[in-house]
């Protein structure tokens, strides 16, 4: 796995605006939002429902676009990319962990983890090798042939993490990764994210409602009414 450079600001949002049309009315989510996240940082984003956390994460993931402003991740200007370019960027530069794991139930654990590798020019052997390696990393090497339905929530989320990191992206986005887990499983998942940040230098942005989960991040940003109102740094 690559180790990211800690000195450069990796994610940069400048003057981001976003609004949705709901029932013929335009509802602003952000207006002129700024944010800088250095490479190798682990940031938790908290805030009440409707504060724009998910919209922000969707924009960082390239599945939503800002109405105005500059959204740069690494050397890519996501705000200027078309749909196909953003899909390609997602395939090569980002991994995502979902609250409800979003594993394909009809595929085995190994096949689920392999999905992002199908987008790369790798031989079947190389893909298999990478899958085995990440499953070992998340402690599920012996579950490769099982189907997700036979696993606990914590195990499924570890599969989700394995899928997110198998293509070795520099950026890991986590959408409420512990929201569907009990405390013990949540702590295991958070410890794994921490390990990925510290040992492999992954830049991690995690949206969460759970203050205990946020404690695992280097810093926590509180978002409310479309603006960051508070920042807490880890001790």
């Amino acid at each position: 796995m690559t180790t990211a450079n800690h000195l450069e600001p990796y994610i940069q949002l400048s003057g981001i605006s976003k609004a949705y049309a709901i029932g013929g009315e335009t509802v602003p989510i952000f207006s002129s939002l700024d944010l800088k996240i250095p490479s190798g940082d682990f940031v938790a984003i908290m805030g009440p429902s409707g504060s724009g956390k998910s919209t922000l994460l969707n924009m960082l993931a390239g599945i939503d676009r800002p109405d105005a402003g500059c959204l740069r991740i690494g050397s890519s200007r996501l705000d200027q990319m078309g749909e196909a370019a953003r899909a390609s960027w997602r395939a090569h530069c980002m991994g995502i962990v979902f609250q409800f794991y979003n594993l394909l139930p009809m595929l085995t654990v190994a096949e689920n983890v392999e999905l992002p590798l199908l987008l790369k020019s790798l031989s079947a052997r190389d893909r298999r090798g990478r899958v085995e390696k990440v499953l070992e990393l998340v402690g599920l090497a012996d579950r490769a042939r099982q189907y997700p339905v036979s696993m606990s929530g914590g195990q499924q989320q570890r599969v989700g993490i394995a899928r997110a990191i198998v293509a070795d992206p520099a950026l890991l986005l986590c959408d409420e990764p512990t929201g569907d887990l009990d405390r013990k499983s949540a702590d295991e998942v958070l410890a794994m994210l921490r390990m990925l940040n510290r040992e492999f230098g992954k830049t991690i942005v995690m949206v969460t409602h759970d203050p205990q989960a946020a404690l695992h991040a280097n810093r926590t940003l509180h978002l409310d009414k479309g603006a960051f109102i508070e920042e807490r740094r880890a001790a």
Partner: peptide
């Protein structure tokens, strides 16, 4: 819906 959206989020093409 969720499966299609998931793989497309991973980078699968339309």
């Amino acid at each position: 819906t969720v499966e299609i959206a998931t793989v497309r989020t991973l980078g699968f093409s339309r």
